[in-house]
Simulated assay, not measured.
Amino acid sequence: MSHGRRPRVWIIGSLIIVRLRSYLSAHRLDENPGLDCDIIWDGEGGRRWEHLLPLLHEKQAATDSDPDVMIIHLGVNSIGRPGTNRVDLICRMKSDIKEAHMFFPNTKIMFSDILPHRDWRHQTSTSGYGMERTRRWLNGAMSGYMMELGMR
């Protein structure tokens, strides 16, 4: 973190990030939830894990300084997509986190757990149970990986 400026936090994700920011705004709550930092919200409905690296390249080119903290809340829209299995997805997630860390070596990267879904639309599994097991497995695998890298 540079001296003389407030820490910068990027929150990157899918629709839930859009909804959280909208909720805070609608209820006239502080968009920085009481934190002494500058939060840059970047949510988009339908965003999948594979959108992460192109987005980070774009953001890095458009900003004058890297974030101090990056919170990534992606993955739910990538579970069960046609042609994607959970092993391929976790390999990509790990690889992308490692690459993001190389882009932003002084940034603390946090992975936000993939949340349960009521409706697993557009996914190929025949049961919500299978999707839920995959979600839990991915969260556990990413948690362990982030700890190996000294992150959260």
Rank of each mutant, 00 (worst) to 15 (best):
G140V: 00
L53R: 10
E31Q: 12
H51A: 14
L15I: 08
I71W: 08
W49H: 04
S78P: 06
L53I: 15
R6W: 02
A62Q: 15
M70C: 14
L20K: 10
P33M: 14
S112N: 14
G150S: 03
I79F: 05
L149P: 04
E44Q: 15
S125N: 10
D64R: 10
H57E: 15
I79H: 06
R92W: 12
C91G: 11
W120Q: 03
V69T: 11
D42R: 15
H101T: 07
L138E: 04
P116L: 00
P54G: 04
N106G: 13
R5W: 02
L56Q: 04
G140N: 12
V76Y: 00
H117V: 01
R6S: 06
W41M: 08
M147G: 06
A26D: 15
I39G: 01
L55K: 11
H27G: 07
R86S: 15
R135E: 00
I79P: 04
F111W: 15
G34Y: 04
R133F: 02
T134M: 13
L52P: 04
F103G: 03
A141Q: 13
I39A: 04
T124M: 13
F103N: 04
R81H: 03
G45N: 12
D38E: 10
G45V: 02
R48N: 05
P33V: 12
N77M: 05
I12W: 05
D30R: 05
L55G: 11
V76C: 02
T126I: 07
A141D: 08
A61T: 04
L74G: 09
P54Y: 02
S125I: 00
M70W: 06
S65M: 07
I40L: 11
H27M: 06
E44W: 10
D66C: 05
L53V: 13
E132H: 11
L35D: 04
L89H: 06
R5E: 13
S65Y: 09
V87Q: 15
D113Q: 09
L55C: 11
L24T: 09
W120P: 01
L138F: 02
A100L: 06
V69M: 09
H73D: 02
G13C: 02
D88P: 00
R86A: 12
P7N: 02
W41F: 07
M70Q: 08
R19G: 05
F111T: 06
R48K: 14
T84L: 12
E148H: 13
E132A: 11
S125C: 09
R121D: 07
E31N: 12
N106I: 02
L149V: 00
S65T: 11
H73F: 05
H3P: 01
R135G: 01
S95D: 13
G80C: 06
M151V: 00
I97F: 14
K59T: 04
G130E: 15
P67G: 08
M151N: 09
T134Y: 09
I16K: 06
R133M: 13
W137P: 08
S127L: 08
E31D: 11
G46H: 01
H122Q: 06
E148Y: 11
D38L: 04
G83N: 12
F104P: 07
G83Y: 03
D36G: 01
W41L: 08
I17N: 07
G75F: 07
D96G: 03
